[in-house]
């Protein structure tokens, strides 16, 4: 609406204008005019506020959410998914049985959610952690005793990591039991195997970071095995014959030295916080993308009868 002072003679809309011709009773005229104008402003504000009662009609809302969330309209329900970057990996509609968690156990989704939880808590932990021999262990003590909710933060990161391994394994177990790795999803199964290995490596590289006895010896045992790599390890079959020593073999490359020390801590930290999460994210993108491209989740599919087996295509 256009607020207009009733005394405005200029005819210009919207402007609070002074009247150049009027010179008498200036004080009273100004006061009255101000009161009238403020009343008009109030009316205008009230009027506009009414429009804000429905936030979905505001410009701000419409700029963020392109689609009206009118529930009864099926087209909107589809668009709610399709026009949202966080939901767009979903199709608009799925088979009515595919939402049964008795079939999927929800393990893949939970694994991804745990990855997000781990990223979030991990970034917070990084604010308090220095990957150096002098600082690392003290930082953990600091986290546990002084940082507000630091202990909770560290515990959550630890247990979410363990939980993620459990859910990854159970996800794989379900995929085997339902035969979901079969055509056309063979390649996605392979991507999944890589993700499984990356999950284990993420957990393992994090194990060293507190720089305590537990992590130190676990990583010592783990990397000692690398010494025995055939051909690339100083103690592996055909390693010494190929010129491998403790100072140039694959274990040296993993640790950045011949013992688990400050370089190993730094390498572990970078693999844990940057290297492996980056690679895993790429594989995850492919994994989720392929679920859609391979026709959504595999079932629950209608059962096939033995009498219906076709001969193999040549």
């Amino acid at each position: 609406m256009e607020p207009e002072s009733p005394e405005s003679k200029t005819g210009k809309p919207g402007g609070i204008t002074t009247k150049p011709g009027v010179t008498t009773r200036t004080g009273v005229g100004l006061l009255e005019k101000a009161r009238e104008e403020s009343l008009a402003l109030k009316d205008r504000a009230l009027d506009e506020a009414k429009a804000y009662k429905d936030p979905q009609q505001t410009q701000l809302w419409k700029s963020i959410f392109r689609v009206s969330h009118e529930r009864s309209d099926p087209r909107n329900r589809s668009l709610a998914v399709l026009s949202n970057v966080f939901l767009h990996l979903h199709p608009a509609k799925i088979n009515r049985d595919a939402v049964r968690y008795g079939f999927t156990w929800g393990m893949g989704g939970i694994t991804f959610y745990l990855f997000i939880v781990l990223t979030f808590t991990g970034v917070l932990l990084m604010f308090y952690y220095h990957p150096t021999k002098v600082q690392a262990f003290r930082d953990i003590l600091y986290l546990e005793h002084d940082v507000p909710f630091g202990k909770l933060l560290r515990n959550m990161h630890r247990w979410a990591a363990h939980l993620m391994i459990i859910t990854t394994w159970l996800h794989m177990f379900r995929v085997v039991l339902t035969g979901s790795y079969k055509r056309p999803r063979e390649f996605n199964w392979c991507v999944g195997v890589v993700l499984l290995v990356l999950t284990l490596l993420l957990s393992f590289t994090g194990y060293l970071l507190p720089d305590d006895q537990l992590g130190f010896w676990a990583v010592t045992v783990g990397t000692n095995m690398a010494r025995a790599t055939p051909m690339f390890g100083s103690e592996g079959p055909f390693g010494p014959q190929l010129g491998m020593t403790p100072f140039n073999d694959v274990r040296f490359g993993l640790l950045g030295g011949s013992i688990v020390d400050s370089n190993a801590l730094l390498r572990s930290y970078i693999w844990h916080c940057i290297g492996i999460p980056l690679v895993a994210s790429i594989f995850m993108a492919v994994h989720f993308w392929r679920i859609r491209k391979d026709g959504g989740i595999s079932g629950p599919a209608p059962v096939m009868l033995e009498s219906e087996m076709k001969a193999k295509k040549p």
Partner: peptide, 30 residues
């Protein structure tokens, strides 16, 4: 209907699962 809308029939399950996992994690971590 053979098919269901993902919003809300799948999203709500995913949301619930996320809430439950978060609660479990908090209890476990505390």
């Amino acid at each position: 209907a053979r098919e269901l809308h993902v919003w809300p029939f799948l999203i709500r399950i995913e949301f619930l699962a996320a809430v439950i996992v978060t609660v479990i994690l908090f209890v476990w971590s505390i």
